[in-house]
Amino acid sequence: MTKDSTGRKFRVIVAKPGLDGHDRGAKVVAAALRDAGFEVIYTGLHQTCDLIANAALQEDADAVCVSILSGAHMTIFPELLDLLKKKGMDDVLLCGGGIIPPDDAEALRHQGVGRLFGPGTDTRDIVRYLQEEIPRRRPRP
């Protein structure tokens, strides 16, 4: 199910922050989510954290999925998390994927970042995770 009992469809931002230009992974995930019935707002390459947070706000996104292959994840995820909180989006799930060492992923998880998916992930796992996690974080009457 990609919508809840009130007819709400899950809206997800898929974004590529920073300078790395490898967007194939992000596109694969965006397409998989689309095919699973999500409304995917794809923002494209070279986004700043501010742009991504603003997009989440205006699009009323349920989740922000970020792909990082540049090694900047320990900078970008905390910054994004902070921005989302500052803008009042405490209930918006921030998760992502890329080349992220397990220790870093664990550290980010403690800060409040959701699951981070590495290379070789089955897209069905991502779909299932979002379908479970979004209604948990953003229950609607």
């Binding site: 699973a36 019935g37 409304e39 995917v40 707002i41 794809y42 494209g44």
Partner: peptide
């Protein structure tokens, strides 16, 4: 078919978004 959508208009609206 899926009820899903890929919404890509923000990609070309970098000035407005920025």
């Amino acid at each position: 078919f899926s009820g899903g959508a890929l919404l890509g208009d923000r990609i070309r609206m970098s000035k407005a978004a920025g």
